[in-house]
């Protein structure tokens, strides 16, 4: 069973509008790589060129900020819920 990754609105254009996608991997770094394989370009939005998570993006595993875990090396297992959230709080919402 794969890990569910929650995608914020600004990134859903990469996932055909899906708000969650199933991803394979044993760590956040592996998840991001797998995510990019199925949805090319997505990782570039989340990470800097050196691979580190961008300043304005927060990543959570079951509600815990990965900076309190082991950052990109934070382990994930089947059934975990991973959220990508803009650091400034929240996603965008359009009235249209």
């Amino acid at each position: 069973m794969p890990v569910e990754v929650r995608i914020p609105t600004p990134l859903r254009k990469f996932t055909d509008g899906a708000d969650t996608v199933p991803v394979e991997g044993n760590s956040i770094a592996e998840l991001l790589d797998d995510l990019d394989k199925n949805h090319p370009g997505l990782k570039g939005r989340i990470c800097e060129d050196d691979g580190s998570v961008r300043r304005f993006v927060n990543v959570y595993v079951n509600g815990d900020d990965i900076r309190f875990l082991d950052n990109l090396a934070s382990p994930v297992k089947d059934g975990d819920e991973v959220s990508i959230v803009p650091a400034i709080a929240g996603g965008t919402r359009s009235l249209s």
Partner: peptide, 19 residues
């Protein structure tokens, strides 16, 4: 705040300190 970020992304509300 993290939960509200996700709620704001889903519900059609004016979150004063989010959207």
């Amino acid at each position: 705040n993290r939960l509200c970020a996700e709620i704001a992304d889903k519900y059609r509300w004016a979150f004063v300190n989010i959207n």
